[in-house]
Amino acid sequence: MPQLNPSPWLFIMIMSWFTFSLIFQPKTLSFISTNLPINKAPMTTKNHPWTWPWS
């Protein structure tokens, strides 16, 4: 079965990951995000007890 022979496909896979890691990833990480995170005060919620009619 030729699918189990990793000789051509292993090299192609490794080279494609190196290309992604060295060329494309730094270019995509250099973009500035348009929605920067804002430090907001956490909102506190009030818990209202449930009045059960049978208790």
Rank of each mutant, 00 (worst) to 15 (best):
H48R: 03
T51P: 04
T34Q: 12
S33Q: 10
I38D: 01
S7T: 13
N39C: 06
F11G: 15
T45Y: 02
S30C: 03
T44A: 01
P37D: 01
F24C: 15
A41Y: 01
I14L: 07
K27G: 06
S55T: 07
L4D: 13
L36H: 08
T44Q: 07
M15K: 08
T19S: 14
S16P: 01
F11P: 12
Q25S: 06
T28V: 13
P42K: 00
S30P: 05
W17R: 07
H48N: 11
K27E: 07
L36F: 12
I14T: 07
W9Y: 15
M15W: 04
I12G: 05
L22M: 10
M15V: 13
S55R: 13
Q3E: 13
T44V: 00
S30T: 01
Q3I: 15
I12M: 11
S21I: 04
P26L: 00
F18K: 01
W17M: 07
P37H: 00
P26E: 01
L10M: 13
F20R: 03
T19A: 09
P42E: 00
L36M: 13
F31P: 01
M13S: 13
T34A: 09
S16K: 01
Q25M: 12
N39P: 00
I32V: 14
S33K: 10
S33R: 08
S16W: 04
K40I: 05
S7Y: 08
W9D: 05
W9P: 03
F20E: 00
F31N: 12
S30A: 14
I32R: 10
T45N: 03
T34R: 14
T51D: 12
T28H: 02
W50E: 15
K27I: 15
P8R: 05
P53W: 15
F11Q: 09
P2R: 08
T28L: 12
T44P: 04
P6W: 03
H48G: 02
S55N: 11
F20I: 02
L4N: 12
T44N: 10
W9R: 05
L10Q: 15
N47R: 09
F31A: 04
M15H: 11
S7N: 02
P26S: 00
F24Q: 07
F20N: 01
L10R: 10
I12E: 10
P53S: 11
N39G: 06
F18W: 00
T51L: 11
I14E: 02
P53A: 12
A41D: 07
S21K: 02
S55I: 15
M13H: 06
M13C: 03
A41I: 10
M43Y: 07
P37Y: 04
K40M: 05
I38M: 09
T28Y: 12
S33W: 08
F31C: 08
S7P: 01
T51S: 14
P8S: 01
F11Y: 13
N5Q: 07
L22A: 10
Q25K: 12
T34W: 09
P2A: 09
